[in-house]
């Protein structure tokens, strides 16, 4: 089991309120991603759940029992840190065994769990090495192994992939997703990378300045962002947001349209502009269109076969049913 409920949980450091009171329910077996810009409080929220920070108010309920005052070890959660936080003086085997040793699990059972975790994470050949002798990806696997053997109610990941290079990151992302499919254990994953959030999550929690902006499935957030912040944060490249005359035309303060919902043409359309930068990826082409009078640059995603170049004049037309409208508070209309 691994259902976690936050009721009015708040956190202040001295006078500074980092997280205003918030409510959140994480269902058993869910993969939940906390995403937001740096300093939005997502790591603090995770640390509150872990018990590494004390809440300033509210209640944390894990599997029906109040864990607000429980020590980290008593909450039955396992955490994977950004820096991996392996014990440098212990072999991989001892690192993985450490939580079981602390829990007083007998040696035979320890060995069985270590072997099965090592096998699942491709660490069998490295069990007698020290963390210092491993690559970044291997260290990350050891950290995950140390979390798995505890058989926790939920896994907490604090930006676990941000120290890895791009290629390894994609690989580890898949491994973590596969792990979730196999174990079906609740996972809470913190990242500032919205691509990780979109690809891994069952449920995304978008945070800004400690407040929850929106909670929902990746596609829900993508299709129906509740406000301008979520609209601009989720999606890569970012949604185009326009204010002024273009928005007034749609009876809104701000309108947004995603790059793939703008069609391009050489001779006719709604908005005229000039291509600043063009990026041809083969499958897709991205154009950054300037001089439209709408925004500094309008991002457009087109088919890879479309052959416009830097400096070309171009007409843009948004798909009318895909335009997002926001009022002057930034909320969806």
């Amino acid at each position: 089991m691994g259902q976690i409920t936050l009721e009015n949980v708040a956190k202040s450091f001295g006078e500074v309120e980092v997280i205003p009171p918030l409510d959140l329910t994480i269902e058993d077996g869910e993969f939940v991603v906390f995403v937001g810009p740096s300093g939005c409080g997502k790591s603090t929220l995770l640390r509150l759940i872990a018990g590494l920070e004390d809440v300033s108010g509210g209640k944390i309920v894990i599997d029906g029992s109040d864990a607000t005052q429980a020590s980290p070890a008593k909450r039955g959660l396992a955490m994977v840190f950004q820096s991996y936080a392996l014990y440098p003086h212990m072999s991989v085997r001892k690192n993985i065994a450490f939580p079981m040793k602390m829990a007083g699990i007998d040696e035979a059972e320890q060995k069985r769990r270590i072997d099965s975790a090592a096998k699942a994470l491709n660490l069998t050949d490295y069990l007698d090495r020290r963390p210092g002798q491993l690559s970044g990806g291997q260290r990350q696997r050891v950290a995950i192994g140390r979390a798995i053997v505890r058989e926790p109610a939920a896994f907490l990941f604090d930006e676990p992939l941000s120290n890895l290079d791009a290629a390894l990151r994609v690989g580890m992302r898949l491994e973590i997703s596969e792990l979730h499919n196999r174990l079906k254990t609740t996972m809470i994953y913190v990242t500032h990378d919205q691509v990780e959030a979109m690809t891994m999550a069952d449920k995304i929690v978008v945070l800004q300045a400690g407040r929850i902006e929106q909670v929902g499935s990746p596609l829900e957030l993508y299709r129906n962002p509740r406000n301008v912040f979520v609209a601009g944060f989720i999606g890569s490249p970012k949604m185009n947001l326009f204010t002024g005359a273009a928005a007034v035309e749609y009876g809104a303060e701000t309108i947004g349209v995603r790059p793939e919902h703008v069609s391009v043409s050489a001779d006719s359309g709604k908005w005229k502009g000039r291509i600043g930068v063009s990026e041809h990826l083969g499958s897709d082409s991205f154009f950054y269109v300037e001089d439209t009078g709408l925004a500094d640059a309008v991002t457009v995603r087109a088919d890879g076969e479309v052959a416009f170049r830097h400096g070309d004049e171009i007409w843009l037309t948004p798909a009318e049913d895909k335009i997002h409208r926001f009022d002057k508070n930034g909320d969806r209309m």
Partner: peptide, 20 residues
């Protein structure tokens, strides 16, 4: 973070000092 990891892994202050 290493000491926090030890705390998450169930080490009390004594074990944290002795083993980590």
């Amino acid at each position: 973070e290493i000491l926090e990891a030890a705390r998450m892994d169930g080490a009390n202050l004594r074990n944290e000092i002795i083993y980590v």
